[in-house]
Amino acid sequence: MTDLIKIQAATAAELLQYVDISEEASGYVIPDTAPEISINQLMEAGFFADAVKLLALGLPKRESVWWACLCARDIHGPQTDEDNTGALVAAESWVKSPTEERRLNCKGYAEKTRYKTPASWAATAAAWSHGSLSDPGEPAIEPPAHLYAHAVAGSVTLAAVLSNPVNAEKSFQRFLQQGLDLARGGNGKTAARATENQLVES
């Protein structure tokens, strides 16, 4: 029995077909059991980036993108430039109301920030959650259903490394607790610094 009520996948195998787990970490993954078991085992063994990948994909899109937003907001500060601030705000706005207009706004900021920061990847995750990957007016290219999770994982992982370059493990552990709280139906803030926005009820 799992308490990660937001994760719809019954087994880790359902997620593993869409993510690449490092060879070293693969021995801690049990495909035919609930994803929670593999996520916990990966965390305990110190394979945090692999745990992030599974959790990012296991969460519903809005909760997953919100997780990226929380982690990006955690390292947000006065030194953050205007475009990255805009990217983060755009992603947070999309979570509150995932309209096509807000998705396109995220897409624009993702391109401006060149996919190099946690905020940029959070905006990218929103942009890849629905709609089309192509520019307006061009033939539609529907994003693969799992694509958003790769951007979320990139955002969370990069935020952890930037938050504590000397000991990213502490940041990974804190961020993963946020994600697990979201998976339990929480708002992701139990182990996080306060942020200004809250995830609206799905």
Rank of each mutant, 00 (worst) to 15 (best):
N167E: 15
E196C: 02
G131I: 13
H76S: 13
C71D: 03
A192T: 08
L158Y: 10
A168G: 10
V52Y: 10
P165S: 12
W94M: 02
A13S: 11
N84Y: 08
V152C: 03
A192V: 00
P78W: 08
C71P: 10
D50G: 10
R193H: 11
Y115F: 13
A151V: 05
K53F: 11
G27W: 11
L158H: 13
H130D: 08
A51Q: 11
P31T: 04
A45L: 12
P98V: 02
P139G: 10
T2I: 07
A9P: 06
E111A: 13
P31A: 06
K112W: 07
P139Q: 11
L162P: 03
D81S: 01
Q178I: 04
A191G: 06
S93K: 03
S163E: 15
S132M: 05
I37C: 02
I75F: 08
Y18D: 01
C71F: 04
E23A: 11
A194E: 15
P98D: 05
H146E: 03
A160T: 09
A51W: 11
L176F: 08
L180P: 01
L59T: 00
I141R: 07
A10R: 12
I37S: 00
E138P: 07
H130R: 09
Y18M: 01
W67F: 06
V65E: 03
T85P: 02
L133N: 02
A91T: 09
Y109D: 08
V89N: 09
E201C: 05
A168E: 15
L147W: 02
G58F: 04
I75P: 11
